[in-house]
Design a protein around this nucleic acid. Sequence first.
DNA 1: CTGAAAGCGCTTACAG
DNA 2: CTGAAAGCGCTTACAG
Lengths: 332, 332
Amino acid sequence: MTALDVANTLGVSRSTVNRAFTPGAFVASETRTRILEAADALGYRPNAIAQALISQRSRIVGIVIGGLTNPFHAILLEEMTERLQAAGLIAITVRLRPDQPIESIIPTLQQYQVGCAILTSLSVSRGMIAACRRAGLKVALLNRVEYGSDAVSVCADVEQGGRLAALHLADCGYRRIAIVEGTAGAWTNEARTAGFRQGLRDAGLSAIAELPGDYTYQAGLDAADRLVAMPEPPDAVLCANDLTALGLIDGMRGHGRHVPDDVGVIGMDNIPMAAWRGYDLTSVHLPFNRMLDRITEVALAMVAEDDIVPETTLIACRLILRGSTRQAGEPR
Amino acid sequence: MTALDVANTLGVSRSTVNRAFTPGAFVASETRTRILEAADALGYRPNAIAQALISQRSRIVGIVIGGLTNPFHAILLEEMTERLQAAGLIAITVRLRPDQPIESIIPTLQQYQVGCAILTSLSVSRGMIAACRRAGLKVALLNRVEYGSDAVSVCADVEQGGRLAALHLADCGYRRIAIVEGTAGAWTNEARTAGFRQGLRDAGLSAIAELPGDYTYQAGLDAADRLVAMPEPPDAVLCANDLTALGLIDGMRGHGRHVPDDVGVIGMDNIPMAAWRGYDLTSVHLPFNRMLDRITEVALAMVAEDDIVPETTLIACRLILRGSTRQAGEPR
DNA sequence: CTGAAAGCGCTTACAG
DNA sequence: CTGAAAGCGCTTACAG
């Protein structure tokens, strides 16, 4: 079923059929209605593949996925897919494993002529943007900033969120505060921990320990072991994300520590599990909807225009108070 | 950068360039090497969009996503994307919300000429396959069977898995066993609960209660409230999936019940959270890798051939023993 | 083994 | 407002 079939059925030219499907094209509105109705009856839909080929403008957006084990990324992907779809774009997904070089997926992205590639935080390492640019791919970063690479970037302001978290612990009366980091080298981790440190400084404190991690549940479990082994263990812990915070809680409980009395815990991302009754984790909520609005605008602009002004959008986070921290203002 | 550019650079015809990229085509192997090298140097990649248009064979597979809040689906999607990619296919994702009719996404699938649409268990309701067929879409079902619809289907044998779970509870000495169901009307739920019932029957038992649910954590929490309110509460519970089992555990603990002594709990899907220390949930592991192998084969066949033999593949599950159930053979 | 020609289903000028 | 023509970058016969 092609435009020509519809044209023949109605005795008009295929040009006219095409115009009926092109918003703003000059067609008699009566003709348009007739065509649209006939097309609908015949089950005709313009072939997006042919449109992409001839117009040299792809409405295909490549989403580089990775780390969907983290519910935060999974939910973000699901919502993003829907937003892009609503904006008339289509998402192709390409998986990039943690240690896989981006060069290995660039050919795929090129072959499908993606109008824009969206890289999400995990498994995006420095230099990837340069590699994409060399390959002629336009890229947008979601939840990641690459300094000095004049890329378009949409992020939650996790540094501000981190500050919020640290200040809250201080408000609750916690004084011996430790930090468990996320994946070393990742922008989000640097921003999150920088926020933690700044917040502690603002409160006249500093971290009594900073442990490495990788954003996993296991990292939290391991951190708990190390923290309780300290001569003077912390009375609160700032975790780079929720998954790690949940592991830390389980680890602390395994050592007989009570949350939030013996130790307060804050995570980041506000994944559904943070609200689970067994954890009730105080967390930093990332501005999901705003991020999605913006990344959709960005994708739309990228597929439509060739010259994109590099721009970084940082959207504020907010703290979600739950039971893994004492009430603010409570005496120690 | 097109095949013609490469051809001109080397002084051959574009036909020859094309042959170099077509496995099994007749080209002097020396010519082929020369072309491939030049193409590489020039950064040429065959345009998949043009290939799809001319060959009338799309290598695009539409994955209908939904319910990525459930880690099981998120991880499955991530792995599936990679497998399809390795098989030379590409995945476009289209979101279908729980109560959205499939008709609303069929046009998108058609416009991108998907060679095959993969529908996953959640948000797939009866009649969807017929709707796809009317629209000329070839569909494969993942983790779902639609009786009487001669569709191709790849599933974990969750009925067998359910039986395993029920038999295990009996082996552990539990006698008053309840069932918490998943989403009513979904094939997976019917199969899972049918397996539970069969297993109980095989052990000479029957469920003392069957509560409705929807595969969420909240459903488990709610079920716990109702179960402890029974005059004689169950000593074990079979949950249609892990998310619900985890909610049930938290709910039971909230009521002061100890797992597994006061109440044994088994889930299904074996999501990462099941192994978390705070839960340590005995669960039924679905055969991830086998399912992915098979669905990839199916997708490959569907994009290549027009006549597909309807076939259902059921792959056995296995039980993962953890701490939410007593040891088998223990006295009551 | 290599090349020239037709054509996939559209969009984009260009005529009328 | 409508139609005819060219062409996107390929694949698929068909010649040589």
